[in-house]
Simulated scan of single mutants.
Amino acid sequence: MSRPTRPPRADHQQAAAHARQQPGVWLPVTEYRSVLTARTVAYRIRTGRPLGNTRYGTPYTPADLFEARTELTDDGARLDIRYTARQESTLR
């Protein structure tokens, strides 16, 4: 029995850029096989924390301008993001 193939790695830089171009719209980022991983990444996106190694930072800054949610799928959990510009005007 062979292992299922891994999906390609998520391009969070590109996902954040697409979300900024479409404020208020939920966009899929990737699907994770582990629900826990998807929820952890969603938390890091919402709080502006680094994804992985801290020296690379996160494209989801400033904190609180991105929302993230997970949805269960047959193969794990899908991660969606949404850019909200509601606080951006108060940051300037």
Rank of each mutant, 00 (worst) to 15 (best):
R82G: 03
I81M: 08
G57D: 08
R78P: 03
A77Q: 04
R69A: 10
R39E: 15
E71K: 12
D75N: 13
A85D: 15
A68E: 13
Y60Q: 02
D80H: 11
T47G: 00
T70G: 03
A77Y: 07
T84C: 12
A77E: 07
R46F: 06
Y43Q: 13
R44V: 03
T54A: 13
A38F: 11
R78D: 08
T84M: 07
P62D: 01
Y43H: 13
A77F: 08
D75K: 12
V41E: 12
A63Y: 03
Y60S: 01
G48F: 09
L79N: 02
R49E: 15
T58P: 10
I81P: 09
L79Q: 04
R39L: 14
R39M: 15
T47M: 14
G76C: 05
L51M: 01
A38D: 10
P62Y: 00
G57W: 06
N53M: 05
G76W: 08
R78I: 10
V41N: 02
T61K: 12
R46E: 15
G57Q: 05
T70L: 07
I45C: 08
V41F: 07
F66V: 05
F66G: 03
A63E: 14
V41C: 04
T58A: 03
A85T: 02
R82N: 09
F66T: 04
